[in-house]
Write a protein that binds this DNA or RNA. Structure first.
Length: 498
RNA sequence: GGCGCCGUUGCCAAGUGGUAAGGCAGAGGUUUGCAAAACCUCCAUUCAUCGGUUCGAAUCCGAUCGGCGCCUCCA
């Protein structure tokens, strides 16, 4: 079944068809590198990561471009504050950005263009717009003349009239004076003496905010490409302006599909840097695994708001994120299920048995079907859960259920885990390593060392051997008081902290 | 003010014309020395409210109430 995606431009779900059969070009607006990635960026990146993974799993050859904006007023401001060079600030946060993406198991983009390396493309695009009469110089600035582009407003579905009323009164007089129309936007901003700048045909300055995405996307994906993505807050003005610039220059449609993800919300409000209500991803990892954040990002539809909650202690310090911790328990379930499958006794596996539970056999196609439906992430998790449940059913330790299971079923389950890791990017780590990392972090948070727990377990094992269950239970309840749960299995006793 | 989105069980969350997925919490059971984990069963005649269209609506239309987003830097 074909992929459908909600397209902001046409304001409806459309069947996705690539411009070039078998190939997909996708451009996602990345970040401006003046600070660390926050939970909202992580969500956005995860959504598009799953989109790319799903497209690849569906057989498309995908060119995934995610830009880095490394020339921007905020970076300049930041550099001024820290006394660094602008490029240093950018470099520092680019490195941090890449690391943050990596720990979230986000596929690297095929091309990660930086503005600072594409000035030539930007000059050329601006020149073309000036030549065609869509842009004009005003002192050292160059502006795009919005009224010259008839389609302006088609992405954000608003009229020029309504925009004009909103724009006037918000701009400073100096800027307003240079603009022929308040809604016009800068393609090139002239640098004041001493300000950071690059020499251009219009003098020293720096590119306006939107032009880089037009220049770089066209450079790598062509004048018209398949999918352009980003956060909902980029619809206007960023993407609206990109369309205007690009289509004015080429006379061709810019992107075929516009896909926008919803926000992470904090107390029902959008998480954003300007509101200051954000948590950076990296500062939260002492409370949960990055993979938990990834799972959390998949629990709601990509266009819907994702509500973040947290708890604080009396001093007002953050002590946890309940929803993400719940997501982490779900990730633990994935890994525990993997371990149970591995622990199935070979004696139970029969070559001649043929029965494969359909939740296992059909998991890959059900997952694909969920994602084909406008990337329905919660349904993808639901079918994943049904798959995992059935794998657990299959893996019930021998001794409890001595029923033979088909080798084909085991293989289908193993394949299911590969698909899960490949498409949703979940359960890709070494199960034991992941699980012990989680429980050791939780033990540490409770001020207990794994050694102390192991020691208590050894004592309990000795008591159990003597069938001294009173003593054994006493040890167990003492641990339970500290939140530690023991599991007695055929392989011995393990512990975990829920 | 303009444009747009949302309101589903105790909580989270799918479903967008054919009679309510999934998770958490809760209840019962299988298993266990007892537990935990795992699995099984149960858990919304009802989808903010009120009207309308339809054989049929959570899903379409209108009104009302409530929440949010964009219109300015923002994933």
């Amino acid at each position: 079944m074909p992929l459908t995606l909600y397209d902001t431009l046409s304001a409806r779900k459309r069947t996705f068809e690539p411009l070039k059969p078998g190939h997909v070009g996708i451009y996602v607006c990345g970040v401006t590198v003046y600070d660390y990635v926050h939970i909202g960026h992580a969500r956005s990146a995860t959504v598009f990561d799953v989109m790319v993974r799903h497209l690849r799993e569906s057989g498309f050859i995908v060119t995934y471009v995610r830009n880095i904006t490394d020339i921007d007023d905020k970076i300049i401001k930041r550099a001024l504050e820290s006394g660094e060079e602008t490029a240093q600030v950018a470099e520092r946060f680019i490195e941090a950005f890449r690391q943050d993406m990596r720990v979230l198991n986000l596929l690297p983009a095929d091309i990660e263009p930086k503005v600072s390396e594409h000035l030539q493309e930007i000059y050329q695009l601006i020149s073309e717009l000036i030549e065609k009469g869509y842009a004009y110089q005003a002192e050292g600035d160059v502006y795009f003349s919005v009224s010259r582009f008839p389609g302006y407003g088609k992405l954000s579905h608003r009229s020029l009239v309504s925009l004009a009323t909103g724009a006037s009164g918000r701009l400073n007089d100096a800027e307003l004076e240079r603009k022929r129309d308040p809604v016009d936007f800068a393609l090139w901003k002239g640098a004041k003496p001493g300000e950071l700048g690059w020499d251009s045909p219009w003098g020293r300055g720096r590119p306006g905010w939107h032009i880089e995405c037009s220049a770089m996307s066209m450079r790598y994906l062509g004048e018209t490409f398949d999918i352009h993505g980003g956060g909902l807050d980029l619809v206007f003005p960023h993407h609206e302006n990109e369309i205007a610039q690009s289509e004015a220059a080429t006379g061709k449609p810019f992107a075929n599909f516009w896909v926008h993800n919803g926000f992470v919300e904090v107390a029902k409000q959008k998480m954003s840097k300007s509101l200051g209500n954000f948590f950076t991803a990296r500062e939260c990892y002492r409370f949960f695994e990055p993979e938990a954040l990834r799972y959390f990002a998949l629990t709601v539809h990509y266009r819907a708001p994702l509500n973040l909650d947290w708890v604080v202690d009396e001093a007002g310090r953050v002590t946890g994120f309940p929803s993400i911790e719940e997501a982490e328990r779900r990730v633990e379930y994935i890994y525990n299920t993997q371990l149970r499958l591995k622990a199935v006794s070979p004696k139970r596996i029969r070559e001649d048995a043929v029965e494969i539970p359909e939740e296992i056999a059909l998991f890959p196609e059900r997952l694909a079907a969920a994602l084909d439906d406008d990337l329905n992430l919660p349904v993808a998790l639901a079918v994943t859960h049904e798959f995992l449940k059935q794998v657990n059913e299959l893996s019930e330790p021998a001794g409890k259920r001595k029923i033979a299971i088909a080798r084909k079923a085991v293989e289908a389950a193993e394949n299911g885990f590969l698909v899960l890791g490949r498409v949703l990017g979940l359960g890709y780590d070494d199960p034991s390593r992941f699980l012990s990392r989680v429980r050791e972090r939780r033990a540490k948070a409770r001020g207990i060392t794994p050694e102390q727990i192991e020691k208590a377990i050894d004592e309990r094992i000795a008591a159990r051997k003597k069938r001294d269950f009173i003593q054994a239970d006493a040890i167990r309840s003492r641990l339970a008081e500290n939140g530690i749960e023991l599991m007695d299995g055929p392989e011995g006793t393990t512990w975990h902290i829920p």
